[in-house]
């Protein structure tokens, strides 16, 4: 085991994979000379040279489409979005080209492509630079969507995503880049589509991905002091979703709170609710509650931004509510 940051884990994953397989290239804005807008690609240009670490103009639709086309004929591109906000500009190529190519060509052209970069909210970046868009990509058949929360998962899942022969949307978190954690040494791969119970418990299942995992774990630690044992499940991969692990946890605890940073309407958590009511209807002792981002564009002011994001107290309140505990005044969608 080594202790490293989430950023270093991602860097290591790309470095190891690029050493292993010469067909892998990294392209995006500032990935080379600048060493990455968030330094995730630090040192890669020096090691792999400008044919494999390609600085692009600010042209998300163009270079994402270029990556898809290259992936049709043997290159395995990693396309970095400086942030996922800009992936909206590339949405046509991600959805209409990358996700559908295999199907509409009758299985002739697979697209081994990773589109990665930071998503999520925070740092007072306001409406256009601060949002969680994973639900947009999760909706699309043909894509895989991965959202690691820890340095170990960041490394193991990115290496697996790079080796996957399908287009993978790999959403990191700007706020998590500096977090530290243990990462196993040597070749470390984490399968896609496998959730992880980050904290075992018997009373309530809290499902949380990406940065919200930390909020959920924080709330669980508090609640443990009150004798409430929360089981925290991190889906890690949103598509394909590990339904079995979610259901096993629900069948044990009979109560569920879902924490997600994105907007509430048609969000990722709504899909979790659907699979749980379908697969564990008779096990539920309370309605499932969702703690989500507020249903507003992200405000700039610090206090308003704080109100817009799921916080520990709101998670705790939701846990109390599914336990029918008193005096907590939780709001599921507040």
């Amino acid at each position: 085991m080594s202790i490293m940051t989430y950023r270093e884990a991602l860097n290591q994953a790309m470095r190891e994979e690029m050493r292993r397989d010469e067909t892998i290239v990294l392209m995006g804005e500032e990935v080379g000379f600048y060493q990455g807008a968030y330094k995730v690609s630090k040192g890669l240009l020096d090691e792999f040279g400008p044919m494999r670490v390609l600085d692009t103009p600010i042209t998300e639709l163009g270079f994402t489409g270029l990556g898809v086309g290259a992936a049709m004929v043997g290159v395995r591109p990693i396309v970095e979005m400086m942030t996922f906000n800009f992936a909206l500009l590339a949405l046509d190529q991600i959805v209409n080209s990358a996700a559908k190519m295999l199907y509409m060509s009758g299985g002739q052209f697979s697209i081994p492509l990773v589109v990665r970069g930071p998503g999520g909210a925070g740092h007072q970046l306001a409406a256009q630079h601060s949002q969680s868009l994973e639900a947009w990509f999760c909706h699309v058949p043909g894509l895989k969507v991965v959202t690691p929360a820890t340095p170990a998962d960041a490394k193991g899942l990115l290496k697996t995503s790079i080796r996957d022969n399908n287009p993978v949307v790999f959403i990191e978190s700007e706020v998590l880049y500096g977090t530290r954690g243990e990462v196993p040494d040597g070749e470390y791969l984490t399968p896609l589509g496998v959730a992880d119970v980050k904290r075992p418990g018997r009373d309530v299942t809290v499902i949380a991905h990406s940065k919200m995992l930390l909020v959920a774990l924080d709330a669980a630690a508090d609640l443990a002091k009150e004798g409430i044992e929360v089981e925290v499940v991190d889906p890690r991969t949103l598509r394909p979703l590990d339904v079995e692990t979610l259901l096993n946890s629900v069948k044990k605890t009979n109560r569920v709170v879902i924490v997600e940073e994105g907007w509430p309407q048609y969000g990722v958590g709504a899909q979790f609710v659907d699979v749980i009511q379908h697969g564990a209807f008779d096990y539920l002792d309370a309605p499932i509650l969702r703690v989500t981002g507020a249903d507003v564009p992200m405000p700039y002011a610090k206090n308003l931004e704080h109100l817009a994001l799921p916080a520990k107290q709101r998670v705790k309140d939701a846990v109390y509510r599914v336990l029918y505990r008193q005096g907590v005044g939780a709001q599921g969608h507040a």
Partner: peptide, 21 residues
């Protein structure tokens, strides 16, 4: 390499195949 039905959608793809070559 296709038949692409969003106007202009094949143009970056073609640049990508050319990049691969």
């Amino acid at each position: 390499l296709g038949g692409h039905a969003i106007v202009g959608g094949q143009i970056p793809l073609a640049a990508g195949a050319a990049f691969a070559s």
